[in-house]
Amino acid sequence: MSERRVDRELVIRYWGMLEDIAGKDAEAVTVPAQWKVRDLLDWVGSRYPAISDALYRVAIDGDIASEDDVLDGVREVALMPPFSGG
């Protein structure tokens, strides 16, 4: 039998103005195990185009991530914009 990694469920957490764009603070999604952060952001951008234009950083399970990081085993992906108010 060929090795086939199963799809994974993770939670996307939208902080700050990204929550206003997405209309929710979090959502659970099931993604292919081989997906990288970049693939997930493409998916987010297709659902909420305004997020593609926003400035934010991605954290996976509490650590700043790059777009090349893989999502296998990840529980939470947070999209964190800088806040401006003071």
């Binding site: 902080w15 950083r57 509490g62 650590d63 700043i64 991530a65 790059s66 947070a78 964190m80």
Partner: peptide, 22 residues
């Protein structure tokens, strides 16, 4: 560490950035 607090939901989060790729 970036500390984030949501007063409406009483939810706290922390993001470690210093070992990041940036």
């Amino acid at each position: 560490v970036l500390w984030i607090y949501d007063l409406w939901r009483h939810r706290t989060s922390q993001i470690r950035y210093d070992k990041g790729p940036t």
